[in-house]
Amino acid sequence: MSQHKVVLLLGSNLGEQKKNIELALEKIKEAGNNISQISEYLMSEPVEFASSNIFCNIATIIFTPLSPIQLLDCIKNIEVEMGRVNDSKASGGYTDRIIDIDIIKYNELNFTSERLVIPHKKHLFERDFSRILLEKFI
């Protein structure tokens, strides 16, 4: 089974943010993915919504046997397991969240479906905190 190189961004702005991210990383690993690199933590203001809760973010490179949609299902399940109730795509807007996991790149794949677009252009080109975290990985 081949392994695919994937860049993920994780963020949390509720509860103990660093512990939330560490737990999410553990769950990603438990799901059969190999975590190769993890960036430093970066604190940032919420983007595209107002909140007094600051985000803690990291970028990570994983190697996975999963297809893009299988990986999306995996990380959405982790978000739900950890208590995330609002998915921004489903609700049509951003809110505070205990964990957010985004697929940024998957190999060099260009992929578009109703549920997923790879590469994640907002994180690659529009969001300052993302560019800072991703500059060593992309």
Rank of each mutant, 00 (worst) to 15 (best):
M1L: 13
S2H: 13
H4V: 11
K5D: 11
V6C: 13
V6R: 00
V7R: 00
L9G: 07
L9H: 08
L10A: 08
S12Q: 06
S12M: 08
N13F: 12
N13K: 05
N13L: 11
L14Y: 01
L14M: 13
G15E: 07
G15Y: 11
E16W: 05
Q17R: 15
K19A: 15
N20G: 01
I21D: 10
I21F: 10
L23E: 15
K29D: 06
E30T: 10
A31T: 03
N34G: 00
I38W: 01
E40W: 04
S44Q: 05
F49K: 06
A50L: 14
A50M: 11
S51N: 13
N53G: 08
C56D: 03
T60G: 02
I62K: 00
S67L: 14
S67N: 08
I69K: 07
I69N: 06
L71N: 04
I75W: 01
K76A: 03
K76L: 15
I78S: 03
E79I: 14
V80T: 10
V80E: 07
E81L: 12
E81T: 08
E81D: 09
V85S: 09
V85G: 05
N86A: 04
N86L: 03
S88K: 09
A90M: 02
S91V: 14
G93K: 12
Y94Q: 07
Y94L: 14
T95Y: 08
I99A: 04
D100Y: 02
D102R: 03
I103M: 04
I104C: 03
K105T: 15
Y106K: 08
N107A: 07
T112Q: 15
S113I: 07
S113N: 08
S113W: 09
E114L: 15
R115W: 09
V117W: 02
I118D: 00
P119F: 09
K121S: 13
K122V: 13
L124T: 09
E126G: 04
R127C: 11
R127F: 10
D128F: 03
D128R: 01
S130P: 07
I132M: 06
L133T: 05
E135P: 01
E135L: 04
K136T: 12
K136C: 07
I138W: 10
